[in-house]
Design a protein around this nucleic acid. Structure first.
Length: 302
DNA sequence: AAACCGTGGAG
DNA sequence: TCTCCAAGGTT
């Protein structure tokens, strides 16, 4: 998987740069994910990255396959209706992502001749594409050398470099920090960007880290310091039960399943609190996830 | 800039 | 059961 590298020190040596060790570890430990297969085009990578925003790999895989089977190019997707993409999104969650991905496909078709751009600023100008996703697409989709920082990477750096238990909030300097750890060789630096994420996803996990199998455990500042507990302010866990997110989810669930516009009564049935239900329906209308027909019924936007 | 935006599996 | 959390982005 990995090619020979121009390292002046023997593999495994404590003098071996951290980046090189992580890349070597990745060669033997990486998951066999479909969007990592050689030849995966930038559009397919973009779709995977958007789907993976806050959604676990296992749930993304089947949807990603069917999505690309149906819309293999940005131009193909640009011709789809919002209702189609909302349904195809299924229950991945945060359905506004589906809407934005479609809008991104339209923008790519109109502004970039149907070709997913490789430049960071052009990618970040696309709906639903931020700091992370832009660099992931440029790096993993186009093979550009780019620092890529997600929550996994921030956690690895927090522990390995700063000796802290948890990742600090994202900063612009994160990109500089991780770039400093990357191997010199471009091909290996590109591999390094995925490799650090993988290390955070498989070994240096949020719950119970698997330090015994970590390839860089001997130079991890957090482990060397005796795994000090997180000292900063406890980060809030988002509630779900009873929130607008749950109500919106139920409302949309009804409309996804419906083959024709539904009466308001059908929506009343899924949530008792009329005030909250109404607020959520309104917000779905504002978001463009739902439309109201002339006769007052509701449906996905066809 | 803190809060909001879904969903379901794991511990 | 219930808490945590999974490749963020937007406002």
């Amino acid at each position: 998987m990995s090619s020979a590298r121009p390292s002046p020190v023997p593999p495994g040596s404590s003098a071996d740069p951290v980046g090189e060790v992580v890349v070597d570890w990745y060669a033997g430990a990486a998951r066999d994910l479909p969007w990592r297969e050689p030849g995966t085009d930038p559009w397919a990578v973009l779709v995977s990255e958007v789907m993976l925003q806050q959604t676990p790999v296992a749930r993304v895989e089947p949807v990603w396959r069917s999505w690309l089977d149906r819309w293999p190019t940005p131009a193909a997707m640009a011709g789809a209706s919002p209702a189609e993409v909302i349904r195809a999104w299924g229950k991945l969650g945060y359905p506004r992502r589906a809407l934005r991905l479609r809008e991104a496909a339209v923008a790519i078709t109109e502004r970039h001749g149907g070709v997913v751009p490789a430049e960071i600023d052009e990618l970040e100008a696309l709906p639903g594409v931020g700091t992370y996703t832009a660099r992931a697409v440029s790096c993993f989709g186009h093979g550009r050398r780019q620092p890529v920082v997600d929550t996994n990477v921030r956690r690895v750096v927090a522990r390995l470099v700063h000796g802290r238990a948890e990742a600090a909030p994202a900063r612009a300097s994160d990109l500089v920090d991780i770039a400093a750890l990357a191997p010199e060789d471009d091909a290996r630096a590109i591999r390094f960007s995925v490799a650090v994420m993988e290390l955070g996803a498989l070994v240096c996990v949020a719950g119970t880290p698997r330090c015994p199998v970590c390839p860089v455990k001997d130079r991890c500042a957090w482990r060397l310091a005796g795994h000090p507990a997180h000292d900063g302010p406890p980060r809030r866990v988002q509630k779900f039960a009873g929130t607008d997110r749950q109500v919106r989810g139920r409302l949309l669930d009804v409309l996804r399943a419906a083959s024709a516009p539904v009466e308001e009564d059908a929506l009343t049935a899924v949530w008792d609190d009329a005030v909250q239900r109404s607020r959520c329906l309104d917000s779905l209308l504002v978001d463009g996830l739902v439309v109201q027909t002339d006769d007052g019924r509701f449906s996905l936007p066809e």
